[in-house]
């Protein structure tokens, strides 16, 4: 992993690491990947990926409304809001 890859990763994750600490971060990540990469020694051809251990299917609910309007509470607890909306720094399109 190089610094460009790290920077891309930081952008995707919306995280920030100071320029001077980036090498250290790369090293830490690489150490973990060294452990992870031991997977490459396994013969996995016959195994299908497993998403969820119980492999349940067909869980759904009927289309019935439950009104749990908590507008005031949600807005009040948010970092910034006005009477009607969550307020954020200008979104530049």
């Amino acid at each position: 992993m190089n610094k460009i890859e790290l920077k891309n990763l930081l952008f995707l994750s919306r995280l920030r690491v100071n320029e001077e600490d980036q090498d250290k971060t790369i090293e830490k990540l690489q150490n973990t990947f060294e452990m992870i990469d031991q997977m490459n020694d396994l013969d996995l051809d016959k195994f299908e990926p497993l998403n969820n251990p119980l492999e349940l299917t067909n869980v759904s609910r009927s289309d019935k409304e439950k009104n749990r309007n908590k507008k005031e509470e949600f807005l009040e607890k948010s970092p910034k809001s006005d009477e009607d909306y969550f307020v954020v720094p200008k979104i530049v399109e």
Partner: peptide, 21 residues
């Protein structure tokens, strides 16, 4: 009647942030 993954009402044109589960 309701949203794809929540039981809040699916309706256009209501007061802001009132149909939020």
């Amino acid at each position: 009647n309701t949203k794809l993954f929540s039981p809040a009402k699916n309706q256009f044109g209501e007061e802001a942030n009132t149909l939020v589960d």
